[in-house]
Structures are given as structure tokens and as C-alpha cells.
Amino acid sequence: MFRKKSVWLYLLPGLLGLMAFYLVPFVWGVWFSLTDGTIDNRFVGFDNYLRVWQNEVFQLGLKNTIELSLLCAPVIFVLSFLLAGMLRKPIAGSTFYRNALLMPYLMPSAAMLIIWLILFDYGGPVNRLAVALGFDRVFWLEGAALRVPIVLLYIWKNLGFSVVIFTAALQAVPESLYEYASLEGAGWFRREWSITLPQILPTAFLVFVLAVVNAFKIFKEVYFIGGAYPAESIYTLQHYMNNKFSKLDYQDVTTAAYSFAVIVIALFLLLYRTKSVRQGEAA
């Protein structure tokens, strides 16, 4: 009994911090999204939600955010899985390659962006390569074409972290299972699909969820290159929220944020259910 009570004592500072910096703002934010934002802050029900959801720019931002996430997350997932599989084998320099993959994740975004800006500049190496291959030069850093460097940057930056997670998970898969499968005549794809994936399903789920959630936060790189009002093709939901915040439209910010949170939770539940079903089948 005494130990249990003392546990609460140790947890108290952290819990207070959690309440003060997460729970209270969360609840307060919900209240904000239900008021009109005037000096008297009158309750208006779901008017804000109706207005924001009908806003063309909010819809654009939401669409772009989901598109980018659905584009980036599977690519990250598949690439990191394949790379982790390759690095699982005891090849020379595997540690070096693993560290090299992780390096972009540790680098400051601003430094990486400078490299990207040089690479994709109108006169940069990418365009010069394109010209050498017989293609026209492209304004990669403007307009709709900005999606390409943004997606590539995101993948390059976040790939290493997923590789590290997958590598750790793959270490736990018994080698004997692969030997049995090989003896049974299973090819590479069959082995990975029937042995590896079921064995590392929780980790794969984690990696996929992280990839999706991180993709939702792709704003920072876009803002650095494209500014507060970039091309429509990469105008994300965070742009909408960021711009609204600077205009003191806290109601719209919280409305958009909670709307998005609901979508993310729904997606998470869907993925979780898929994972559970798959786990059940595997069992």
C-alpha cells in the first residue's frame, strides 16, 4: 500500500505537466472551436466546423495532406522494409550503410533544405542530368513540380529511422523458419510475405503509422521552400492552420486541428483493425 501511494507521488510532477501542457489545452481547444472568437467569446455550437469544412482552402489543404501521406507512407514502408532486409545479412559495411541512412534523420531540416535547393535549382545538378538525358529543364522549386523534391526530401529524411526499426524487428525472426521455408521451395517473396511480415507485424504497423503521421507533418519543409502560400498542389492543412493562427483566427485553427485529429484517429483505428485481423489470420 505504501509503495503504491509513493508511486503516485513520483508520478505527480509528470502528471501535472501532462495535464497542464496537454490535457487542459486539449479541452480548452475544444471549447475554442465552439466559440465565435470575438472579445466576448460566445458559444456558437458547430458553426465553426460547418464554415471551415466548407472553406475551399481547407478542403485543398486536407486533400493535399492526405495525398502526400498516402504517397509517402507506403514508399517509406516498402523501401525501409527492403533495405532492412538487405542490411540484415552480414555484409561488409552494413553498419556504415545503416548509419548513413540514419544521418538525414539527425540532420537539421534547414541544412538539408539548402542541399535540396542547390540540387533542384533551375541550373542545378538534377536539371543538368535531365538535359543530358534529353529532357527539358523544370522549375522544381515552383508550382506543382515542387511536390517532387518535397516528397523525395521527406523520404530521404525519414527512411533511415524506419530502417532502424525494421532492422531491430528482423533480428528477432528465427533464422530456422527461413531455412524450413527454403527447403520447402518457398521463394523470396513468399518467405517475406508468409514469414517475415507476420513475425514483425506489430513493428510494421508501428512503422506504417509513424510514416503516415509524420507525413501529415510535412509542413516544415514546404514552408521553408514555398513559404506561407506555396503552390496549390503542396498547400497543406498546416499551412491553413499556420496562416489562420497569425491572423488571430484561433477558432478556425482549433476547428481544423480537431477535424484533422478525428481523421487521423479514424485512420489509426482502421489500420489497427487491419493489423488485428491479420494477426488473427496468422495465428
Binding site: N55, Y229, K244
Partner: peptide, 19 residues
């Protein structure tokens, strides 16, 4: 042409945000 296109696109976003 690029200038007016980029300007209009930005202004359009700014105006739509305020609606």
C-alpha cells in the same frame, strides 16, 4: 507571366482563407 501567375495564386489563397 510567371510573376502574375504566382502572385495571383498566392493572393487567391489568401482571399479564400479569409472566407
Amino acid at each position: 507571366d510567371s510573376l502574375v501567375r504566382e502572385l495571383d495564386q498566392r493572393v487567391r489563397l489568401m482571399q479564400l482563407e479569409d472566407q
